[in-house]
Amino acid sequence: MITPTHYMLLSAALFIIGVIGVMVRRNIIIIFMSIELILNAVNINLIAYSYQLQDVIGQVFAVFVIAVAAAEAAVGLGIILAFYRNKETVNIDEMNLMRW
């Protein structure tokens, strides 16, 4: 019997894998992909509860999450391209122009 707890644990594990990617990797493209993994973890949770409660609102919110993820990817990748044109790097440790 698969309960919502199982889906919650799967979602938590996927979320933490994304967080580890953000914390440990230094390639900013990999970090953006980790953020996509985190958003997917959120969606799994929403849809699991939509199924459990037999209500489509969870799926409506998942549609909004996907829309925001698409917007985030477009703007983020635009920033990466603009930065790469100036500094020739995608290493976030070298992206310290605005750090005091």
């Binding site: 493209i29 990817a73 477009a74 990748l77 990466i80 790469y84 790097t89 440790d93």
Partner: peptide, 19 residues
């Protein structure tokens, strides 16, 4: 979109080189 950016960003040196 990600693949396009990975291909456009021509990595001459690995991003992990500088720590």
């Amino acid at each position: 979109l990600y693949l396009f950016v990975v291909m456009l960003v021509n990595l001459k040196r690995l991003p992990e080189a500088f720590q």
